[in-house]
Structures are given as structure tokens and as C-alpha cells.
Design a protein around this nucleic acid. Structure first.
Lengths: 129, 129
DNA sequence: TTCTAACTACGAAATTATTCGTAAATAAAT
DNA sequence: ATTTATTTACGAATAATTTCGTAGTTAGAA
């Protein structure tokens, strides 16, 4: 994909994407059940949004069975990268540093998390040598 | 402020807040001019949103002069922290680590940024000793 | 076969956020 | 003093997203 097709899922679209990324291709029923573990969401609401996503080309549908099976077409980390980018611009004037520092400062990361991050930093440093 | 008043500015509210945080108490005209350096925004649009924000208690207005002067009531880093929190939940299942790693991985931070982040990490590590 | 339950299709209502037009008030300029 | 420009007030139009009701269809159970 050469020219970026900047996909910006809405909030409820993202919610559904997260489930499809985690559990793979799923029926509306399955997705709706998962959503209802957290908060009440009407079945037809989930259906409608998944249909809209399919229209937009974010999902593809397999209609061979009566229970249609939906799968995500878009890549998880690419999409999250885009979302992060937008959030970064809007909230931290595009500075990853500011965001990272706010994230680290606010969230009391565990020793293990810090270790992983330090590891990642040295990897990045080594790559650019 | 004891019980969190979870303030969630919308996108255009945040845009205005950023300006008020940077430049301090300002008139609608000033804010609107700043906005128009980037993109066209109607004057009454800016006015309306700032009035709404004042209604919500996000801004306070000084009406002594004809040009009302608006100031932010909410704290910059607290608000950004809240926004980050929400974004984190929605997009990275609340894991600051995932987000930080995505941010660092995606944004080719400069050597200086990495240094600052490492410094911050050691500060956090020392604090918890 | 007939009844019932589950599913899709569809459109409209509700919600939230944003934009804009117009009127009224005030100050500044001529 | 009259005109002109700037500002606030207000409500309505627009837009985007989400929710929901209802009808029609299909599959499975009785």
C-alpha cells in the first residue's frame, strides 16, 4: 500500500476491531456478546456498525453461512499507529517525547515495563549507529 | 479537587485550550486569529465554543471589558493526563507500555529525546527505591 | 408442517459536536 | 451626530456517530 489510505475508525468501530484482532473472524453475535461483558450494547447496534464498517471496506464479510462472519481488513499496529499519530498531534503537538514522558510520569509503570522500554531504547540507539 | 471531575474536552475545545494554556487569558478575537493561522475557522464558531466551554465551567470569563477575556480553569497536564488515559484504554487496553513502545517505535525519536526519556526512567527508578 | 428463535436489512430517531447566519449592543471613526 | 466596525447573544442548520424499532428471512424445534 503505497499512498496511505488513512483509516480512522470511530470509537465504536475501534471497539469492534479490537475484538476481531484478538479473536479473529467472528459473527455479530460473538462480538456483541463480548461487548456486553462490559456494557450493554443492543444487538442491532453492533450489527449496524459492523455493516457500516463492511461498507467502508474496513471489514470483509463471508456470507456463506447464515451467520455472517466478519474479519478485519486493516492491520492492527498500523491502525493503532495512525490513531496514535492523530492523538499525538491533537494533544501533544506531535511530540512523542512529551507523550511518552506524560505516560511514564502518570502511570507508575512496573520495573519490568521500564526494563522493556530501556531495552527498546537501546535497540533503537543501536539501529541508528 | 478531591473527587475527580473527569473533564473531557472535545477536539475543538482542546484546540482552544492549547492556545489559552500557551498564551494565557485571551479574547475570542485573539484565539480565532491564532486558529486561522492554520485553518479557516469562523469567528462566531470560536465564540460559540468558548461560550459553551464557559457554560461547562472549563473556562471563566472576565466581562469587564467589551472584549471578554477567557481563561482556562483546568490544568494542562492533568487534562492531558486524562485524555491520555482515555486514549490508552480505548486503544492500548490501558497499557502504557504498549503505547510507549508504539510511540518510540513509530516516531524515530532523536538522540536527545531518547536521552531525556532515559533520564526520566532513572528518576522513576530512583524514586521507587 | 407449523411455530419459534435467531439473524439480516433498512431506515429513522436520538445524540453529540460543529458551523453559521442574523440580530442586538457597544465602541470607535468620520 | 451619524455611520461603520467589532463584539456578544442566540438559535437554528449541518454533520457525524450511535442507537433502536420493525419487517422480512431463514433455520431449527416441536
Amino acid at each position: 500500500m503505497s499512498l496511505k489510505n488513512k483509516i480512522n475508525p470511530t470509537e465504536s468501530e475501534l471497539e469492534i476491531l479490537q475484538l476481531l484482532w484478538e479473536f479473529g473472524p467472528s459473527s455479530v453475535r460473538f462480538v456483541n456478546d463480548k461487548q456486553n461483558e462490559n456494557k450493554e450494547v443492543g444487538y442491532t447496534t453492533t450489527l449496524k456498525i459492523m455493516q457500516i464498517m463492511a461498507d467502508k471496506g474496513i471489514l470483509i464479510v463471508n456470507k456463506e453461512q447464515r451467520q455472517h462472519v466478519y474479519s478485519s481488513v486493516i492491520d492492527e499496529s498500523e491502525t493503532k499507529g495512525n490513531l496514535l499519530d492523530g492523538f499525538l498531534k491533537k494533544t501533544f503537538s506531535g511530540s512523542a517525547k512529551k507523550l511518552v514522558m506524560q505516560a511514564l510520569g502518570n502511570h507508575n509503570p512496573s520495573k519490568e515495563e521500564l526494563e522493556e522500554i530501556k531495552k527498546l531504547i537501546s535497540e533503537i540507539e543501536n539501529k541508528s549507529k
